[in-house]
Structures are given as structure tokens and as C-alpha cells.
Computed example of a mutant assay.
Amino acid sequence: MVTTAEAKNMRNKIDIEGTVERMEAPRTVNLKMGGTTEVCNAFLVDAAGEIKLTLWGDEITKVKNGSKILIKNGYTNTFKNEVSLGKGKYGELIVKEY
């Protein structure tokens, strides 16, 4: 298990646990292979700080503000000098408390 501070310096294979502090409104984006999906930014908080968490599609309805979650095998991405965490294709999002 890593902290949010440690996760910001990692690229992949991130196992992290925290609480969803706040969620932005979902927005619709176009997919590279065609079609659209919903995407939502949330903020995962632990004792070391916070990291932006990107939720896609049905992941958005699985969590809410205050949810305690575990990301297994997650990855980070940097966009406009901001690091965000996602579960990715091979990761897992586990909601411990809804």
C-alpha cells in the first residue's frame, strides 16, 4: 500500500487506499474508438494528502463523497502538470464503505 504522496511519483502497479473527499460533476467525452462515455474527477484523500482520481463510466456510480475505496494495480497520468490516478484496464476499484 502506498500513500497519495508516494503515488504521485509512481507510474503503475499502485495499490492505494483512501476516502473520496469530493467529486466534480461528470462530463461526456468522445472515445478514440468511437462513441462517448462519462468521466468524473474525484479527490482521494489519505493521511499524506490527496490525489486526483479519474473515474470512468460505471465507476462513477460506485462511489460518492465519503466512500472509502481501494485501488489495486492503478496507474498515474500527468496532464497539464497535474498528476491523476486511475484504475486502468488491468486495475481494480473496490468500494469498502459506500
Rank of each mutant, 00 (worst) to 15 (best):
E21Q: 14
T3E: 10
R11Q: 14
K64I: 09
W56D: 04
E21H: 12
E92H: 13
G66F: 08
K96A: 02
K72L: 13
E82T: 07
L70G: 04
A48C: 11
I71W: 06
I51A: 03
S84D: 14
G49N: 10
L93I: 10
T36D: 02
V83E: 00
N77R: 14
E21G: 06
G34Y: 05
A48N: 11
E38G: 11
K64G: 13
G18S: 09
R22V: 10
N12F: 12
E6G: 06
T78F: 00
V20H: 03
K8M: 10
V83S: 00
E24M: 14
D58A: 10
G74D: 02
V45Q: 15
D15L: 00
L44G: 03
S67G: 05
F79E: 02
N9S: 13
E50Q: 15
V63E: 08
T19I: 15
V2Y: 10
E82K: 02
G49S: 09
N41K: 12
G49E: 12
L93A: 05
I71P: 01
E21K: 13
T76A: 01
I69P: 05
R11T: 15
E82F: 00
V20P: 08
V39E: 06
T3M: 09
E24C: 10
L44I: 03
R11N: 14
E97N: 12
M33C: 10
A25F: 09
K52G: 04
I14C: 01
A48D: 15
T28F: 08
N65L: 08
N30V: 09
Y75C: 02
A7F: 04
T28Y: 07
L31S: 06
I16C: 01
N41V: 04
I16G: 02
V95W: 04
K89H: 11
R11L: 14
T28K: 13
E24V: 08
L55D: 07
